[in-house]
Design a binder for these strands. Structure first.
Lengths: 151, 151
DNA sequence: TATAATTATCTTAAATTTGAGATATGTACT
DNA sequence: AGTACATATCTCAAATTTAAGATAATTATA
C-alpha cells in the first residue's frame, strides 16, 4: 500500500475510533448524570461554574459548544431549579453572569463523587501510563482541530 | 501528591481532553456534512450503508447510538430524499433492511472525497506515528468502555 | 457627536432526539 | 397448540437543540 494511501486511511480510522471511544465513554457519564435528574448539557453548565466560578453565559456556551438559544434555555431551567442565578454585569450591561447558588454548590459537591467513579470506570481499560499518553495525544489533537477550525 | 489521587485526576483529565478533541474534530465534519444538505445523523446512517451494505434498521441504530424512534424518523427522511429504500426481510418479518439506492450510492461517492479532506484537515495536528498511537489507545479505550457498560 | 459595526442575550419557529408504549413477529417452554 | 418472553419497528408527546433574527449595549470610526 502506498504511503500516502496509508496516511489517508489512518485519518479516517482515527476519526472512527475517536467517535466510538467518545460515544461509549460518555454513555457511562450520561447514564450517571440522568440518575441525578439532569441531562448532559445541564450538567455541563453546572460543571463549568463549579470549576471555573461565575461565568458570562456567552463563555459557558463556548466552552461546551452549544448555541446561544440553547444556553438561554438551559440556564432558565437551572435557575428554576434554583441551582444557579443570573447576575447582570455592572461594567458591561450586555453581559449576564451565571453563578451557582449555595444549593447548586452543595448539589454538585454531592453528585461529583459518583460522577468521578463513573468516569474512572469508563476509562479503566487504560493503565496509568496509557492514560498519560492518550491525554497528551488528545490534547494535541483537540488544540490543533480547534485552531484549524476557521469560522 | 499521593499516587491514588494522581490516578483519579488522570481519569478526569482524560475525559475532558477526549470530549474537547471529539467536539472540535466533529465541528469540522459537521460543517462539511451540512454543506451537502445533511445533518450528522443522516450522514451517519448513509455512511454505515455505504461501507457495510444493507443493514437492519435496528443494527444501524446500534452502530451510531441513536434511539429506535430516531432511526425511524431519519430513515423516513432519507427515503423521501430517495437516497435509500426499505426492504422487508423475508426470513424474519419483524426486520426491515435499509439499502442505498443508486442515487444514494452516487451521492455518497460524490461527497466522500471532501468528507475525507475535512477529516484529514481536522486531525492533521498529529503526525502519522502519533495517529497510529492514538488509534491504538482509542480502540482500547472504546472497547473497554463498551464492555464495561452493562445495560 | 453621529454613524456604523460588534457583541451578548433573548425570542421564536422548526428540526431533531428521546422515552414510553403499541403492534406484530419470533422463540422458548409447558 | 398455547403461553410467556423477547425482539424489531413504529407512533406520539415531550424535551432538547438549532438557526435566524430581534433587542439592547458597547466599541470603532468618521
Amino acid at each position: 500500500m502506498p504511503e500516502e494511501q496509508q496516511h489517508r486511511d489512518d485519518s479516517l480510522l482515527l476519526m472512527v475510533v475517536l467517535a466510538r471511544a467518545y460515544n461509549w465513554v460518555t454513555a457511562h457519564t450520561t447514564r450517571e448524570i440522568r440518575q441525578h435528574g439532569l441531562n448532559p448539557t445541564e450538567f455541563g453548565v453546572l460543571e463549568v461554574l463549579y470549576h471555573k466560578g461565575p461565568q458570562p453565559l456567552q463563555q459557558i456556551g463556548e466552552k461546551i459548544l452549544i448555541s446561544s438559544g440553547n444556553i438561554t434555555y438551559v440556564v432558565d431551567k437551572l435557575e428554576k431549579k434554583q441551582l444557579l442565578v443570573r447576575k447582570p454585569c455592572a461594567e458591561d450591561r450586555r453581559v449576564i453572569y451565571a453563578e451557582l447558588t449555595e444549593k447548586g454548590q452543595q448539589f454538585l459537591a454531592s453528585i461529583f463523587p459518583s460522577h468521578k467513579i463513573a468516569i474512572e470506570q469508563a476509562v479503566s481499560g487504560l493503565n496509568p501510563e496509557e492514560k498519560r499518553s492518550a491525554i497528551e495525544l488528545l490534547k494535541k489533537l483537540g488544540h490543533s482541530a480547534q485552531e484549524r477550525f476557521h469560522k
